[in-house]
């Protein structure tokens, strides 16, 4: 490894104002290869904005991003497109391409961005869809898939690009409760397979078992961070712990 043991992703002092409001206030984080960091916090804390600043879908006002030790020059279009190919992103509401079936959803970026041939792209897409358990659904269009299936297609679509990092923005928040499991199990497999990930989620139980570190965000800052065993321990006197017990209560009420 040429980069030695340095972090694969380093984000420093990201600031972002949107509509006169400070959404991100000097946020920094770093991610080592194979790590899973979980981002929790109330709605409006800036979790989505942070994730979208990392691949410059939202250009930050200030701050730097380093990928494998190289600072990203996001003003250079070519660098920007190259960066984005290496960072897979999963969205809360899937964002599948509605005019393409599952197979084409996965293969289109391989063909148009990676310039793969039609049949090679098809094979790769097929393998990727089989990996997320959708080998029998490849000809279906987004409108014909359930929410959980859509999210699994979107994961396959991101994985097909061979990303070094995955950013998952509340991947189960738009799903019916009985469909959450199938998506979480795909994410669990990814984590076990050593994929480097940042996961924004409200699934605290899931976060607790898999996360290497929990980052708690509020008002545009990371206010607490640490291993879940410390931060979320039953007797821990942390903001994260408070937040999670509230979520737990809410969840129990719903059950």
């Amino acid at each position: 490894m040429t980069q030695g043991q340095g972090p694969i992703l380093r984000v420093e002092n990201i600031c972002k104002m949107l509509g006169g409001k400070k959404i991100l206030n000097s946020v920094s984080l770093s991610l080592n290869k194979g790590e899973l960091k979980v981002l929790i916090g109330p709605s409006g804390a800036g979790k989505s904005t942070l994730l979208q600043c990392i691949n410059f879908l939202i250009p930050p006002d200030r701050g730097q991003v380093w990928l494998e030790g190289t600072e990203v020059q996001h003003h250079r279009k070519r660098d920007l497109y190259a960066l984005r190919q290496q960072i897979g992103m999963i969205f809360q509401d899937f964002n599948l391409f509605d005019h393409l079936n599952a197979l084409e959803n996965v293969s289109i970026a391989l063909r148009k961005v990676k310039k793969m041939g039609r049949s090679a792209a098809r094979e790769r897409a097929l393998a990727q869809l089989e990996q997320v358990g959708l080998g029998d659904k490849i000809t279906l269009y987004p409108a014909e898939l359930s929410g959980g299936q859509k999210q699994r297609v979107s994961i396959a679509r991101a994985l097909a690009m061979d990303p070094k990092i995955m950013l998952l923005d509340e991947p189960t928040s738009a799903l019916d409760p009985e469909l959450i499991g199938e998506v979480l199990s795909v994410i669990r497999d990814l984590a076990r397979g050593g994929m480097t990930m940042i996961l924004a989620t409200h699934q605290i139980g899931f976060a607790r078992t898999l996360a290497d570190e929990v980052l708690f965000m509020e008002d545009g800052r990371i206010i607490e961070q640490g291993p879940p065993a410390e931060l979320l321990a039953p007797n821990a006197r942390t903001r994260s712990r408070d937040f999670c017990s509230k979520l737990d209560e809410l969840y129990e009420e719903n059950l």
Binding site: N55, Y81, I87, F91, D98, A109, A158, M161
Partner: peptide, 22 residues
């Protein structure tokens, strides 16, 4: 839905390619 623009760009599509293909 604008989300599809984001999804395409998150995979490295340029604005022009996003328009043409998506």
């Amino acid at each position: 839905k604008h989300g599809q623009v984001l999804a395409a760009q998150s995979m490295g599509f340029s604005t022009f390619k996003t328009m043409c293909h998506i």
